[in-house]
Design a protein around this nucleic acid. Sequence first.
RNA 1: GGGUCUGUAGCUCAGCGGUAGAGCAGUGGCCUUUUAAGCCAUUGGUCGAGGGUUCGAAUCCCUCCGGACCCA
Length: 520
Amino acid sequence: MSNEESFWDIRLEKLQRLRELGFDPYKIERWDTPKSADKLHADFIEGTEVSFAGRISSYRDMGKAGFAHISDGDGKIQAYFRRDELGDDAYEAYKLLDLGDHIGVEGKLFLTKTGEQSIHVSKFHPLSKAMHPLPLGKEKDGHVFSGLQDIEIRNRHRHLDLMANKEGRTKLLNRSRIVAAVRSYFNDCGYLEVETPLLQQEAGGAAARPFVTHYNEYEIDVKLRISLELYLKRIICGDVQKVYELGRVFRNEGVSYKHNPEFTLLEFYEAYANLEDMMRHVENCFKYVAFTVFGSTKIDVPHEDGYLSIDFGQPWARVDMLDEIAKHTGVQRDQLLELSSAVDALGAGARVNGVTGKRVVPGEERNLGGLLEKLLEVYVEPTLIQPTFVIGYPLEISPLAKKDPNDSRFTRRFEGYVLCSEICNSFSEINDPIDQRERFDFQVGEAAAGDEEAHPMDEEFLYALECGMPPTGGCGIGIDRMAMLLTGSSTLREILLFPYMRPPASSEQAVESTPDHKEH
RNA sequence: GGGUCUGUAGCUCAGCGGUAGAGCAGUGGCCUUUUAAGCCAUUGGUCGAGGGUUCGAAUCCCUCCGGACCCA
């Protein structure tokens, strides 16, 4: 008999005995929990009759009496059990409880000798049995001992992480509060939330490779969306003036601390609005969310062995893309206006940013836009700590943004950066259908030349533009990165309840503690 | 795809060529205000998998499978 089987078998025997004693943990359907543990502490009056339920997070048996802490996930309260008051059967049932079981209790609030607010239990019932040993570490002065550290187990078996790691739990739950606040901001601004298709013939609106799946009934391959853009603009074309969607998009690329194959994107579009309006919304949205969720427009985030205060209460800095690249590469702005002169000035070989180790090879870039994008990433991004809008992106990499009326090599587009990370992307949307068709034609050419992320042609979208789209401002915000930033997380996995993980090699490794005689 | 680190009991970790360890959890016993409860006893491991070197491998080497962090 292995150790794992004996854990299971012992708990099975306890379960059986509980049933014999009339304490079947799986029989009860509800238990009154009018107050959370935190609220019981806050409203504590000795002698008050209370009812409470939760998971046993500590357990001390002293022969004819015992104590246990009962956690409702966010807070916990101690309960006191006495044999002489509960009776022999109930006390035996108490002794059959394990760390991790859920129980409901009723009793009077009292203070122990050492002054801890507790429940003197007059009645209790187990409400579920933990059939596996749980990583509920002991705790003193807020420090948890022998809890759950293994990052892989925390990510793969998130329920264990949620119950065992208070700090991680708070971040994950704050992510939901951030999403709720974003919704609330746009609803309050008069935007209409809409839902558009996840399954698409052509996945457009961004530069990324899609996931492909098969639609049996029509015998066609369909793609999972990579952005929300084109459908939302078709709604604008239908004279709905302010729309947003907050939804999951999918990109068939690698996983990193800031990439997950599926992520949550917010896109909002407003007719008769321009880049200025979009910047105002981004500023106000971050300010609103930070204040709503964290109570302050200043957020302290870990940064280089210390903390850094990011201030969302101020308007964001605004810089010109080309100016910044010129400033950080030492190349004259004028030389960055043509691919050939830029390569001459930079040198065709690899250039490495000495601070970050990131590198760019100017000679390998096919067009000016691609080179400038790379230079921005290598030289400028690492310097953008406080909230900053970078304005004026090159035409080739902006197939959906209006041309800059003053220089048609550039577009009316900006991206927002905070803590060296891109956080939003916004354009004044192209509403000239002829210009848009030319841009798609160029992208189709790029695809033919081997660019797997080039934008596909979309005739239905063009038809909508041809029917007339008002001048429109649009913007996308990566909600996961926003959550990462606001919660001070260093990886996306800290704010994704179920981050993508490579499937375990074998079913045996899938759930380490599961004996094989059980289903999972 | 490349580099660095990493995988030992349910959990947290030590051991780094010479008989597999500790704390917690678990099990049995004592204990009616404990709280990282305590005291006594005790169970539990193919040291990620496979191959090699060696008289001898958790330890050294190779391959593979996971994971973390950098870079692409």
